[in-house]
C-alpha cells in the first residue's frame, strides 16, 4: 500500500516545470493551497481547476500516474465528505431514516471534496517534478532568513537529504535482517497483531544498531572531507532564478489576483 502513494515521488521527464527553480514551486504550492481556501464559491474553484489543469499539462506527467497515487487518499476524502453531509445544519433537503440531509451539507461536502483533491494533486505535482535534493535545497534557501533567529536551517536540510539517501540502504538492510531472522526461525507471517508486534523486536533492534554504526561512519567520512557546517560552504548547483522563474511568479500573481477579483465580484454558488 505504501508503494502506491505517489506523494513524494519524483517523475523523471523533460518539462518547463521540471527545470523551474524549486523555490518557485514551493512558493507556488503554498499560494495555490491558500487560494483554495480564500472563497467558498464555484468561481474560485473553476479558476483553480483551470490553473491546475494547465500546470498538469505543462508538467508532462501522465495524469494516470498522478491519480494512481490518489486512490488511497480517496477513502479519507470520502469519509470527510460523508461527515459533512450529515453534520451540517441548515435548510433540510430530505431525510433518510433519522438523518436530515441539508442543502448546506451537500454543498459543503462537494466543496470539501474539490478543495482536498485539488490540494493533494497540487502538492503532489510539486514533488513529482522536483528531486528530493532540489527540494531540500529550495527549503534551505527559502528558510534562510530564519538562521538569524538561530534556527539550524542548513543542518535540518542536510539531515533531510541524508535521510533520503539512506532510505533505500536501510530498506535493503531490513530485508537482509528479516531473511536472517527467518533462517533462525522468526515468524513474520503471523496474522495476529500481538505476534506481529513481537516479531518486530528482533528486526528493529539490529536495524537500529546498524543505523547508528552507519551514522558514526558517515559522520567520520564527512569530517574527513572537510565538512564543517554551512559556514563558508559553496554550492555545486546554486539556486539562481532564471527568466522562466520570474515568468512563473508573474503567472502566480495573476492567478491569485483573478481568484480574489472573480471570487468576490462574481460568486456562483452551488444550489
Amino acid at each position: 500500500m505504501l508503494r502506491d502513494i505517489t506523494l513524494g515521488q519524483y517523475y523523471q521527464t523533460e518539462s518547463v516545470l521540471h527545470r523551474m527553480d524549486p523555490r518557485v514551486k514551493l512558493a507556488g504550492t503554498l499560494i495555490y493551497m491558500i487560494s483554495l481556501f480564500l472563497y467558498k464559491n464555484l468561481t474560485a474553484y473553476i479558476l483553480a481547476f483551470l490553473f491546475l489543469l494547465s500546470v498538469i499539462k505543462i508538467s508532462k506527467v501522465p495524469f494516470k500516474y498522478m491519480v494512481k497515487g490518489l486512490k488511497t487518499v480517496m477513502v479519507l476524502l470520502f469519509i470527510t465528505s460523508i461527515f459533512n453531509i450529515f453534520y451540517t445544519k441548515g435548510e433540510p433537503l430530505f431525510t433518510i431514516w433519522k438523518f436530515v440531509i441539508t442543502k448546506e451539507g451537500v454543498a459543503n461536502a462537494v466543496y470539501i471534496m474539490i478543495r482536498l483533491s485539488f490540494l493533494i494533486i497540487g502538492s503532489s505535482l510539486m514533488t513529482l517534478t522536483t528531486t528530493p535534493n532540489q527540494l531540500t535545497d529550495g527549503l534551505e534557501k527559502l528558510l534562510g532568513p530564519l538562521k538569524k533567529i538561530k534556527v539550524p536551517v542548513h543542518e535540518v536540510s542536510m539531515m533531510m537529504s541524508i535521510a533520503l539517501r539512506f532510505i533505500p540502504i536501510l530498506m535493503e538492510e531490513t530485508d537482509k535482517i528479516m531473511k536472517a531472522q527467518m533462517a533462525r526461525g522468526a515468524n513474520f507471517e503471523s496474522k495476529k497483531l500481538m505476534e506481529k508486534i513481537k516479531a518486530m523486536v528482533p528486526l528493529l533492534v539490529p536495524l537500529f544498531i546498524s543505523a547508528f554504526r552507519r551514522a558514526n561512519d558517515l559522520a567520520m567520512a564527512m569530517e574527513a572531507r572537510c565538512y564543517q557546517g554551512g559556514e563558508g560552504r559553496t554550492r555545486m548547483k546554486p539556486l539562481v532564478y532564471k527568466k522562466i522563474d520570474y515568468v512563473a511568479y508573474g503567472v502566480l500573481i495573476i492567478y491569485v489576483a483573478s481568484v480574489i477579483i472573480c471570487g468576490r465580484l462574481i460568486p456562483i454558488h452551488l444550489l
Binding site: P132, R165, A221, R225, C226, Y227, T234, R235, M236
Partner: peptide, 21 residues
C-alpha cells in the same frame, strides 16, 4: 555505502570542494 553523501554521483564528488568553499 557509509561514505557517500550525495544522491547523485556528481553531487557526492562535489561535496568535498563545496565544503572547502
Amino acid at each position: 555505502d557509509n561514505q557517500i553523501i550525495g544522491q547523485v554521483v556528481e553531487e557526492d564528488v562535489g561535496f568535498g570542494p563545496e565544503n572547502m568553499g
